[in-house]
Design a protein around this nucleic acid. Structure first.
Lengths: 223, 223
DNA sequence: TACTCTTCAGTGACAATGTCACTTAACGCA
DNA sequence: TGCGTTAAGTGACATTGTCACTGAAGAGTA
């Protein structure tokens, strides 16, 4: 997973449709950072002082409770920006979300001063950042809606369908699914066993096979 | 609740520490809007195409479910900006949050083009908007944390203390408190009755008296 | 005062979810 | 093959959500 500078800036900035001028400015001040899969990219004890643009890979942003439960807030994909770190940088407030590299990750970081200047000088850059903020706000609205009003079986069905998109085999432990949804492993186990009894899925250790996607979809859309 | 232009711009822009130059620009392009207490300021069927700055009053931003339950996401106070509308304006995505005027409200709105230009030209304005976004992100993190991991009695105790700050009399129906917390009236009733049995509060129709704040605080901080 | 209406709160049964303290099963590997 | 580790199952119980009601308090009115 090695890339040259010319390589990644092409692909990264290409996807964003930023003009060459902006790209060059970014390049001039940015630094490249890499993380291995599973590494923490940021967290309560590790608040970065720069803005991050993800080039390769995926970051899972989640929040965890004192009791050890966890819920996934959203994922940052290649070509997107992780504004949460920026938010904290700007608002100086504490938060207990963390970002974990779900794959090997390459990103570029922009120091705050450069960020400020680029935001001032380049419309396209500023628009990019604003819309990144907006998307995350909307993401979080969705999470609140799900957690506050959604049924767990429905949410789990949604998650399974998302994970099994294109195929029907999912590699995930009950614990991992619980961490996605912010619930306890036992709850996931109960619901999955129910799904299995109903013929919707098939389970073996660490693996789930979707047997009846249409039915799962009906369930997922029933709320 | 009538104010002259000179009046409200003084106080509004004063609190934000925006320079006079920025104030004048804002003034030039902004329009003043007012809402009566209880009116909807924005909602799913009513997405504004401009950025809003609250001058007088308070807006309650909440999300509601199909089943009729409701949860308060945050409140916009005088001097703050309501970025959720901006977020939707920018991201063009659907959402089901709405803003209700909790008091009579006066705000100024800035058309999108003016917003863009001001963001480009004025550092202080841009910083204001970024930090408004940041604050809301953090607010929502808190909501997610509460809803996903918090106990209802703890959250209710917190809410009671917040509402009873400075005094000890709260005017609120069980239903209203349920809507704050995203739960059902019956749940609030149960917990409040328990609080009363324990001597923490006293209830009459539509009114709650806090009898033992220290104990309530202990409860509120016990998670 | 007594009657009616409306809103607010209480109740009991049950379902869904969360918690706890375990046990059992599957796999990786020496 | 046995061992240690991780994944999953289990039953009891607490908390929270839902439903269909009943009862109670206050506002207005005759």
């Amino acid at each position: 997973m090695k890339t040259t500078v010319g390589d990644w800036t092409e692909s990264f900035l290409g996807t964003r449709n930023l003009p060459r001028r902006v790209r060059d400015k970014l390049l001039h001040e940015a630094r490249v950072v890499s993380y291995k899969q599973g590494q923490q990219v940021f967290g309560p004890d590790n608040i970065p002082d720069s803005l991050m643009f993800l080039h390769v890979g995926r970051i899972r942003v989640s929040q965890s409770s004192d009791a050890g439960r966890e819920i996934v807030l959203y994922r940052v994909e290649a070509g997107e920006s992780c504004v949460l770190t920026t938010a904290c940088m700007l608002s100086e407030e504490a938060y207990n979300a963390e970002g974990i590299a779900e794959t090997d990750v390459t990103a570029i970081t922009l120091p705050r001063t450069s960020f400020d200047r680029l935001a001032a000088e380049e419309d396209s850059f500023r628009g990019f950042v604003f819309s990144a903020y907006s998307r995350r706000l909307i993401d979080l609205l969705r999470v609140v809606d799900d957690v506050a009003f959604g049924r767990m079986d429905v949410r789990l069905a949604e998650r399974l369908l998302a994970l099994g998109e294109g195929h029907s085999e999912i590699q995930a432990t009950h614990q991992a699914l619980a961490n996605e949804l912010g619930t306890a492993r036992e709850v996931v186990s109960r619901i999955l066993n129910d799904f299995q009894k109903r013929g919707l899925i098939l389970q073996t250790r660490g693996r789930i096979t979707l047997q009846n996607k249409p039915q799962l979809e009906r369930l997922a859309n029933s709320a």
